[in-house]
Structures are given as C-alpha cells and as structure tokens.
Write a protein that binds this DNA or RNA. Structure first.
Lengths: 215, 215
DNA sequence: CTCTAAAGTGGACGCCGTCTACATAAACTA
DNA sequence: TAGTTTATGTAGACGGCGTCCACTTTAGAG
C-alpha cells in the first residue's frame, strides 16, 4: 500500500515530485481517517522527506489539506457523473430530468457511504461554490455543484420547475443529501447500517424532487 | 467574560465544582471556536487548575468534549422549543401540524446561525439518537430529535401523513435542515449572508413539508 | 565553470493529550 | 480526638503536532 518513493530511500537529494507525493499521501490519510488525519508530518514521512520540506510546496498544513480536499471533491464529482451516465435521455424529457436529479443525489450519497473519509474531507474546509478551478473538476470538467445545476436546468426546461422555483434550488436539493450524508457519517446516525441509509436516500431524493416541483 | 473562579485564585486546595467549571469553560470555547477549540488544557487553565486535575473528572479530552456537546444539544433543544411555542393550536389541526413542523426547522436553523460554534460542537461527535439521557434535554425534557418526532406525529394524526410515509420521516426532514446548516457553517456556503441562509431555510422547510406529505 | 536560487535538513519552540508518581485535605472511623 | 482512608489537585515527563530560523545541497542558467 505504501508508495514506492516511501519504501526505497530515494537516492537523489531532490525528490522530484514532492508536492504531488504529499497530496497523494494526504489522500491516503483522508481516506482512512478523514480531515483530522491529514497531518503534515505524516505526509512528509510517507514521502521519505523531512517535515520542513513540505514548506517549500505549501504554506502550511492548511494549504496541504486544501489540496487534498480538492482531490477529494474531484473524485466525488466523478462518482456523480458515473451515476448520471446510467440514465440516458429517453422520449420523455421530464422523466429524464427527474431521473437525472435523482442520479445526482444517489451518486452523492453513494460516494459518501463508500468513501466516508474522502467525503468528509471534501467538505471539511470551505471551498468556494462558484470555483472553476480545474483541480476541482472531473472528466466532464464539472464539480458536484455544477452537475446539480445542470440537472435542475433540465427540470426547468422540461417544465417541471418554474423560473421562480428554479432560483437557488441547488441549495435546497444539496442541503437534503448533504445532511443525510453527514448525519450518517459523523452525526447521530453513524451507527445506522449503510444499506438503510441508502434506502433513506432513495426516499429523500423523491422528497426533494416532489418538494421542489410542486407549486 | 471570564468566570469568577478563573479570575481570583481560589484559596482552597479543592475547587469544589471543577467538573462543572470545566464544562462551562468548554462551552465558552465551543461557542467561540467550535469543537476543535475545546481543549482540555485551556479548560483547566480557565478553571485555575493544573491540566491533570481534569482527569479526576473526565477520562480524557474526548469525554470532556462529550459533556460539552451534551450541553450544546440541550441549548439547541431549548431554541427549538422557543420557536415551537410561537405557534399555538388553532381550529385546524392540519395547519397547526404544518406550522409546528416548520417551527422545528426554523428553530433548528436559527440556532445554527446564531450559535454556530455550539451547533457545530453539538454534532461534532456522534451521540445516539434514542438517548433519553436527561443531560440531553431542555425544559420540556426532549432532545431535538424527539421534538421533531412530536411534530411529525401531529402531521400523521391530522391526516397529512400516511402510516407508511410517517416511518423514519424524522431522518428525511432532519437531513434537509441539518444539511443547510452545515453547508452554511462549515461548508461551501460559509460566505453566504445569514439572512439569505434563513430565507433559503424558509423555502427548505416548505419543500420538506410538501415533499413529505404529497403521495 | 561559476553562482544563484530552489529544494531539503536539523534543531528548537510552544502547543496539545496523557502517563506515573507524589502531595494535600476532607471525611470517616475508632 | 487522633489516625487512616480516599478523593482531589500538583509536578514532571513523554511523544506528536505545526511552525520558525539557520544551514546545506544541488540543478541549472550565465
């Protein structure tokens, strides 16, 4: 599981790719223990380098954590896209729009359950929402928020959502799935079996879909 | 702002109420800086006592944090109850039930916006949901979850919610408001003005109410 | 072939939580 | 009242953390 560079002592004085190696080590720690487990000293240790070497590439622990968080966000986006690809546009644009919205929610929750550490890390420290930073994006060049916007646009275009209700609807839908994820991961529902959480997730996205579009 | 006991050096060797003093100091720190700011050494410092004294009353930092979290939860419950008291049962039990549900959501979000540090602390570490621990309850002897259950019962009794839909509906409603609170407090929406968050909150509770009851 | 600037090292500091051993005082007991 | 027990607080140490400063190494530009 250890990276090569950490196993065999490197021969060169220069590491060559330390910045990246630190982020990768940070990702491992985030996956295993969430944001609090992302420690600067441990990252340098895994990279086979002295603690202070990190300061040549990051201003401090916070900045390293920020980079790790970006990577986590990117993976989340990829997971959502995977789920979205499952529903192809059929004849009825409305059912496609509905399915797409659900797919985003399910993809979001599925990632949260499958990679809890990464998910928690992704939202441990506030990234800005409108960020177009390519680091935050997956294959389709979109972050989770943008994907959500996309499917909500689909709902509006297909007539499921009035202009007024469309406004800021992202935040309403997002709140629901995000809340369930956090209640299950680091909240009072942490003991709830994950299958049950995902079942609740199915009901939740239906609630959102109906609660958004009605009236 | 400092507690008396921390200002004037105590004369007695015994503190007399250290356990409580530590929790109170922890509460202050939680209010100011969230769960990560709740540190054992600082608490003992504020209580005018040596660090190790804390170990006579708590097994460690985690247990102290747990006690502080209980206190935060209790305050949250009180805030929700205050909001609930605003809507008195009128002629129509259905509108009363709807109003009550919204009140729980609004009270929840209002507390989160007004006391972000305490709110974050309240959910920093998982308490169990079914806990009847009196420490977790406010005047009415209920924790936030129980209050939510109560208003959902009202909805069912007034015919707004079928038996099947009533099941686990707590988690669906809770997820929505909890998600918005966390997105706004320690998530990507942390820069959003609080009034706007509360406006979104109004829409959100409507979404929940409709999404839950429809069909 | 030098010289510079980027990259990594070493040591120190103060913070944290926690362990072990010891001191004090209050409460019980004889 | 005197003696003992036990709850409570103290002292000092350890390792881990982030971070600062001063030093060394080396790749690459001139």
């Amino acid at each position: 599981m250890k990276r090569e560079v950490s196993i065999e002592k490197r021969k060169t004085f220069r590491h060559g790719d330390l910045s990246n190696a630190l982020v990768m080590a940070g990702l491992d720690m985030a996956r295993a223990g969430g944001p609090n487990a992302v420690t600067l000293r441990e990252a340098t240790r895994q990279a086979g380098v002295s603690p202070n070497a990190a300061y040549r590439h990051f201003a401090g622990q916070a900045e390293l954590l920020g980079a790790v968080r970006s990577a986590c966000l990117s993976r989340l986006a990829a997971a959502i896209e995977d789920e979205m690809k499952k529903c192809r546009p059929g004849r009825d644009p409305q059912t496609f729009a509905r399915k797409s919205l659900r797919a985003v929610g399910i993809g979001y929750l599925g990632f949260a359950m499958k990679e809890p550490g990464m998910f928690r890390t992704a939202f441990s420290v506030p990234p800005l929402v409108q960020s177009t930073d390519p680091a935050n994006t997956a294959a389709m060049e979109m972050n989770p928020f943008q994907l959500l916007s996309l499917v909500l646009d689909r709902m509006q275009e297909s007539g499921l959502l009035g202009k007024k209700l469309r406004q800021n609807a992202e935040y309403l839908a997002w709140s629901a799935v995000h809340g369930l994820a956090l209640l299950a991961l680091e909240g009072p529902l942490h003991t709830m079996p994950r299958e049950l959480v995902l079942e609740l997730g199915e009901r939740l996205v239906v609630m959102v879909e109906r609660g958004l579009s009605e009236l």
